Amino acid sequence: MAMNGTITTWFKDKGFGFIKDENGDNRYFHVIKVANPDLIKKDAAVTFEPTTNNKGLSAYAVKVVPL
């Protein structure tokens, strides 16, 4: 089920960042999981599918909501 969130941290040079989800949890995401990576920036609103990996909470099918 899709969730909403906000990008809180973005490491462009490393290709990953973190999203604060609607429950207040931080989720890892990688640029290859983003549909529109050219719009990635700190504080951008996103929708995504929540999941977990071996390191904890993460996100896939991430879409940055255009302003």
Rank of each mutant, 00 (worst) to 15 (best):
M1I: 13
M1D: 10
M1G: 13
M1W: 10
M1T: 15
A2F: 12
A2H: 12
A2S: 13
A2K: 14
A2P: 14
A2R: 15
M3G: 04
N4R: 14
N4T: 14
G5M: 02
G5A: 03
G5W: 02
G5P: 00
G5Y: 02
G5K: 01
T6Y: 12
T6D: 03
T6C: 12
I7E: 01
T8F: 07
T8Q: 09
T9Q: 15
T9L: 14
T9H: 15
W10D: 01
W10T: 01
W10G: 01
W10P: 01
W10C: 03
F11G: 00
F11E: 05
F11N: 07
K12P: 14
K12E: 11
K12D: 07
K12N: 08
D13N: 12
D13Q: 10
D13P: 05
D13T: 11
K14C: 10
K14H: 08
G15H: 07
G15C: 08
G15N: 07
F16V: 04
F16H: 04
F16L: 03
F16S: 03
G17H: 01
G17L: 02
G17V: 02
G17A: 02
F18N: 04
F18K: 03
F18S: 04
I19F: 03
I19T: 00
I19A: 00
I19K: 00
K20D: 04
K20A: 07
K20L: 14
K20E: 07
K20H: 12
D21V: 02
D21C: 03
D21T: 03
D21Y: 02
D21Q: 02
E22Q: 10
E22N: 07
E22I: 07
E22C: 11
E22M: 08
N23R: 10
N23V: 07
G24Q: 05
G24E: 04
G24K: 04
D25V: 07
D25L: 08
D25I: 06
D25S: 08
N26Q: 12
N26D: 10
N26R: 13
N26A: 09
N26G: 05
R27T: 01
R27K: 00
R27F: 07
R27N: 02
R27G: 00
R27H: 04
R27E: 01
Y28Q: 03
Y28E: 03
F29L: 03
F29D: 00
H30V: 08
H30P: 06
H30M: 06
H30F: 08
V31P: 02
I32V: 12
I32L: 15
I32R: 15
K33S: 15
K33T: 15
K33E: 15
V34P: 04
V34E: 03
V34W: 03
V34N: 04
V34L: 04
A35Q: 14
A35H: 12
A35S: 12
N36T: 07
N36D: 06
N36A: 04
N36H: 06
P37E: 04
P37S: 06
P37L: 05
P37V: 06
P37Y: 05
P37W: 05
P37Q: 05
D38E: 14
D38H: 13
L39G: 06
L39Q: 13
L39E: 10
L39Y: 10
I40W: 04
I40Q: 01
I40S: 01
I40F: 05
I40G: 01
I40T: 03
K41R: 14
K41M: 10
K41E: 10
K41I: 08
K41W: 07
K41T: 10
K42I: 15
K42Q: 10
K42F: 06
D43C: 15
D43V: 03
D43G: 15
D43I: 04
D43E: 08
D43N: 14
A44E: 05
A45K: 13
A45P: 11
A45M: 12
A45D: 08
A45C: 13
A45I: 10
V46Y: 02
V46W: 01
V46Q: 01
V46C: 09
V46D: 01
T47D: 03
T47P: 01
T47I: 13
F48Q: 00
F48V: 00
E49H: 15
E49K: 15
E49R: 13
E49V: 15
E49N: 14
P50N: 02
P50R: 03
P50D: 02
T51V: 14
T51Y: 14
T51N: 09
T52K: 13
T52H: 11
T52F: 12
T52A: 12
T52Q: 13
T52C: 14
T52E: 12
T52D: 07
N53S: 13
N53K: 07
N54E: 13
N54W: 12
N54Y: 10
N54R: 14
N54Q: 13
K55S: 08
K55A: 08
G56K: 08
G56N: 06
G56H: 07
G56Q: 07
L57I: 05
L57K: 09
L57A: 05
S58R: 05
S58L: 09
S58T: 11
S58V: 10
S58W: 06
A59M: 04
A59Q: 02
Y60I: 15
Y60W: 10
Y60L: 14
Y60M: 14
Y60A: 14
A61N: 15
A61M: 11
A61C: 13
A61G: 13
V62D: 02
K63F: 12
K63V: 14
K63S: 08
K63R: 11
V64E: 02
V64F: 04
V64C: 04
V64R: 00
V64D: 01
V65N: 08
V65Q: 10
V65D: 07
V65W: 11
P66W: 09
P66Y: 10
P66V: 14
P66R: 10
L67A: 14
L67C: 13
L67V: 13
L67E: 14
L67H: 13
L67K: 12
